[in-house]
Design a protein around this nucleic acid. Sequence first.
DNA 1: TTTAAATAATATCGACTCGATACTAAATAC
DNA 2: GTATTTAGTATCGAGTCGATATTATTTAAA
Lengths: 185, 185
Amino acid sequence: MDTNHRIRELINRIARLDAAHSWEGDLNPAQRGALEYLVLANMYSRAPSHVAEYFGTTRGTMSQTLKVLARKGYISEESSKSDKRSISYTPTDAGRALVSVSNPIAVAFNSLIPDEQSELENALRHGLQLALKVNGGQSFGLCKTCKHYDPQGINGFCNLLSVSLSESESNKICVEHKEVASGAS
Amino acid sequence: MDTNHRIRELINRIARLDAAHSWEGDLNPAQRGALEYLVLANMYSRAPSHVAEYFGTTRGTMSQTLKVLARKGYISEESSKSDKRSISYTPTDAGRALVSVSNPIAVAFNSLIPDEQSELENALRHGLQLALKVNGGQSFGLCKTCKHYDPQGINGFCNLLSVSLSESESNKICVEHKEVASGAS
DNA sequence: TTTAAATAATATCGACTCGATACTAAATAC
DNA sequence: GTATTTAGTATCGAGTCGATATTATTTAAA
């Protein structure tokens, strides 16, 4: 049993403990995860296929979860004008309220000293990046760390989508995010 | 969105990616988790209720998962002589073979530099301890870090169960584990 | 331009998870 | 010697999940 197996085991166990709490309040862990993603994602990243890729699951599976979430009234469906095949989900006020409640796992990690917290976040993020590289998955980061981000104008500009970004958009998760080459090996 | 929420989000996302891989080879994530636990746990810690507590789920749910695992031939059931209500599961050779295959997530974290790995492990373990304290759950650690551990004899002695430990036993997970008071706040 | 191939979302299927509830049997308390 | 606790299960209903197949729609190629 080496270090990386123990790390994986710890991550899985903490996630499972979190999942156990996650049942409170009309949602199951998969639904809660999807809803939390939708709250954090920008308007170009809220299609079923995007949520599916974020969680490493299939479109079919995520499609069902999102339909349930919509039926429960926590997200609303909106079809795209430019591509009639595409749809996008937006959290409702009820949905936003649900994800904003305090969480025991987050509270526990809040008790770590700040240095430990930031070390932990960086190491997890780094490990995730490496895992995604193996999988060929997208990084789903924020505009400001993206190679398509151009800090022109008030809140920057996306060179890939050719749009000016609003304050809130540039602080959200994007499917198209490509980590700008840095120290990450 | 503060640091501890981002940490929780990262942990959940990595676990979900791991779960997606976990479907390979005749097992689903819950079954694989339970099997992995049973491989690591000592002989006093392999009852359905122990596995259930480890993962923060109910006895009923875990009972079903273990029955499936037994039906598939990856674990074998054994009833206790001292307490006729109790049973204990032991991984079969087929079960052990299944959990020893290399894992993409573990491989990814293996690429972190050693310092980063140990920092990560410690911080996760610390966070988990704090989360368990809130939950009132058991720590499920190894004998050597347990307050019931007495380093007498060849491989030590357990003061709680009043038994001499074998080499392999003292390196396994135990339900009765109580973290010896240390720097953990 | 008209077929061909790729893409987005969904429906359906079967095995299984999961919490909740109710139950049996055995051990422990009083 | 009865009451209560504890260990494990069966059963239920909603939902996950991968697999597969299907429908629209878009894009590429001939």
